[in-house]
Amino acid sequence: MAKLRVEDLKKIKEASKGTVNLRDGAYRVKITVHMGTCGIAAGARKIMNFLLDKIQEVSATDIILTSSGCAGLCNHEPMITVEVKDGAPVKYVLLDEEKTQRIFEEHVMKGNPLPEYALSVGSETTY
C-alpha cells in the first residue's frame, strides 16, 4: 500500500530547519490560478503544477500560490493573476508553460510586468 512515509516527511523537516518560513503570513508575491470549470478544461492544472515546480526551483518562501474560481472570462483561460506587494494586480491570459515561465522570471522574480501577455493595461477611462 502506497502511503506517505513518516521518514520522508522527517527528511523534509530536517531540510527546512533554519530556513525562515514565510508561507504562513507575510508574502512578497501572490499568484492566483483561476480554476473554474473553464480554467481546468483549458489547462489551469498544468500551469499550477508548473508554477509549483518553479517556486521550488528558486527555493522561494515568499511567494504564495493559490487558486480561485471562474473570473467570467472563460475564453481567456488559462489565466493567472500576479500581485506583487504594493503593485497593481496583473491578469495574464491564454497561458502556456512558455509564457508562464517568462512571467515567473520577469514579473514574479524581478517585478517587471509583461504587458504583452496581460489582459489589458490599466483600466477603462472616462474620457
Binding site: A2, K3, L4, V6, D8, L9, K10, I12, K13, A15, S16, K17, N21, R23, D24, N49, L52, D53, I55, Q56, I64, L65
Partner: peptide
C-alpha cells in the same frame, strides 16, 4: 507530522504527495 517546521504548501511536501 510537519507542524511547526513547514506548511502543507511547501513544494517539497507537495511533490512527495504527487509522487505517492
Amino acid at each position: 507530522e510537519i507542524k511547526g517546521v513547514t506548511t502543507i504548501t511547501d513544494p517539497a511536501v507537495l511533490k512527495l504527495v504527487r509522487d505517492v
